[in-house]
Simulated assay, not measured.
Amino acid sequence: MEWSKLKNVILLMLLCVNAILLLLVGSQARVSTRYQEETKEAALSVLEQGGISFLLDELPDDLTLPVVAVTRDRSNESAIASALLGEVTLQEQNEVRPRYSGQNGTAEFSMNGSFTVTLQPGVYTLDGHDYDKSSQSCLKTMGLSGTLADKRLDGSETVLTYFQNWEGAPVFSCPVTLRWQGKDLIQIEGSRLEGTAASSTEEALLSTSTVLVRFLAGVNAGGYVCSRIEDMTPGYLSSSTTTRQVQLTPVWRFTTDTGAYYVDALTGDFTPAE
């Protein structure tokens, strides 16, 4: 057989093999997609049999957040105090909880990330914006971004609570609360995480369907009562491994008609929100 004809035969055989491989991959993808859909439907069915309605339009995709180890950095606490209060002085040279004071208020920071800033009325105002936009602007001044978790009235005060974001994902154990008295911001308190990622690892996380089943099991085992899931949000919970080292673990936050709960995306552990 001439080489040109043999070459054409070989190319035709390779094309046939590639076509067969594509068909096999496509078939496996369809089977995988169908299996995932059936698993989701089964998880929702189990939930309904447990007396809990799922109010979201569809089950969220599987979580893909990494496990992150963060080394705290406290070097800019004085800069944050100055950005919010103007010129300040260090009143207590205590490494555990330094306190800054100025004409416009005070600021205290702790080693575990908790802080309290008290402002004099008129220092930070709405300036024509709504509470959320003004609060987000204040967080940006502190070098933070946050996801709004709650807005409520407390007597004459308007109180907004945010979860600090880490790489775009909320850290549920780092809430920041801003208190407004009329148009004046009078207090900021909560917990902040600032530092650098010492490590970031991709771990095998539980599927969303499995997390949903673990949620139902946790509710039943703990004797909790709820009738509907109103929201299901991915994010992190933090835990201190050393004084300066913090681990961020991927979790799902379930918001229900009776409260909020967490399911660890690594272990499936169920815990109620505090």
Rank of each mutant, 00 (worst) to 15 (best):
C138L: 15
L139D: 01
M142T: 06
L144H: 01
T147S: 15
D150R: 15
E157D: 14
T158M: 09
T158K: 11
V159P: 10
T161V: 05
F163S: 11
Q164R: 00
N165M: 00
W166T: 06
E167D: 08
G168P: 11
V171H: 06
S173H: 04
S173F: 01
P175W: 02
L178R: 02
R179N: 10
K183C: 04
D184K: 03
I188N: 07
S191F: 08
L193F: 04
E194D: 12
E194V: 04
G195Y: 11
T196M: 12
A198D: 11
S200Y: 07
S200I: 00
A204E: 15
L205F: 02
L206Y: 04
L206A: 10
S207E: 12
T208K: 02
S209Y: 10
T210K: 10
T210W: 00
V211H: 01
L212W: 12
V213R: 13
R214T: 12
R214N: 15
L216S: 11
L216A: 08
V219H: 02
Y224P: 10
V225A: 10
C226T: 12
R228I: 11
I229C: 11
P234V: 09
G235L: 05
Y236Q: 03
L237A: 02
S238I: 02
S240P: 14
T242L: 14
T243C: 09
V246I: 11
Q247V: 15
L248K: 04
L248H: 02
P250Q: 09
V251M: 09
W252D: 03
W252T: 03
W252Q: 08
R253I: 11
T256Y: 10
D257H: 04
D257A: 09
T258I: 06
Y262I: 03
Y262F: 15
A265P: 03
L266R: 11
L266H: 03
T267L: 11
T267A: 14
